[in-house]
Amino acid sequence: MTDLSKQSPLGVYVDYCKKGQLAYQVCTDDNTPVFYPRTVAPNTGSANLEWRVSKGLGTVYSTTVVHAAKDQPPHNVALIDIDEGYRMMSRVEGIDPMQVKIGMRVKVKINQGDEKQLPYPVFTPAGDAE
């Protein structure tokens, strides 16, 4: 149950990020993973949402390489299917962006951001780490 006078779904999510964790919710009425975090669950409308910490492993569902500006190197944007059963947008780092392939296994790492940017999760190739 979220009391919005005290905390927001994004606020809790960011707090987990600050601890180096990728968090998501589960609707305990129908045991369905919920992402992005919400005050009430989709479909059921239930407020019975429990926070869980993901193991941080996933598979690339789709990928693109963004050429934002001439003076910046191209960067990756990917959709990741997380093992716990939800999908999120992220970036796969530590590899040439064109070498990020659909089906590739990846693991989370939290980018702690800075004064202007809240922390957010990115991914690196999982390799043999699983």
Partner: peptide
């Protein structure tokens, strides 16, 4: 949108 914007997709193209 904190669940997408930090990754800098060029929207809607990306």
């Amino acid at each position: 949108n904190h669940y997408e914007s930090p990754y800098k997709p060029i929207l809607p193209i990306s």
